[in-house]
Nucleic acid binder design. Structure first.
Length: 134
DNA sequence: CAGATGACTCCCA
DNA sequence: CTGGGAGCCATCT
């Protein structure tokens, strides 16, 4: 059923989600890390409760799970993302290394007390010496 | 009060 | 890849 969470936290989650620009996606965990004080699951619960009158302002569709897949049911979320330019592979997953949001603007994050997203993990050592394409 | 349930994620078999 | 369990929170039965 519905899950009305702590309003203050929900508002911060929405505010963080609003920073995600068109054309990229973020994971529930990314938003939780930026907001702080909550986990990926909280973000999912909060987004499930986005009021109708705010759905066009809060880009809930840009938040996907850690595997790059869609957690919502139906095809609506995917349809919207594809319309925004996000591509899905044959398994229906987004290539996070390519479409993942880099995080909020540093100045904005500081001003609102949000955290920055940790830098992306470097590729495995084994590939470092072999895949030098440039 | 216990159990079920969601737009999660990680870990292990 | 599939499946189960733990950890997480609030609300509803």
């Amino acid at each position: 059923m519905s899950t009305p969470l702590d309003r203050a936290l929900v508002e911060r989650i929405y505010l963080a989600v609003e920073q995600v620009p068109r054309g990229v996606v973020a994971t529930y965990g990314d938003i939780a890390a930026i907001v702080g004080g909550c986990d990926a699951r909280m973000v999912g619960y909060a987004l499930n409760e986005v009021p109708k009158d705010r759905q066009d302002r809060v880009p809930w569709q840009r938040i996907i799970n850690a595997t790059g897949g869609i957690s919502t049911r139906g095809s609506r979320q995917r349809d919207i993302l594809e319309a925004e330019g996000i591509t899905f592979d044959l398994r229906g997953r987004v290539d996070l290394s390519r479409h993942r949001w880099h995080g909020p603007d540093a100045a904005w994050a500081t001003a609102h007390g949000f955290h920055m997203l940790p830098p992306p993990e470097p590729p495995p050592e084994e590939q470092q010496g072999q895949l030098r394409l440039f």
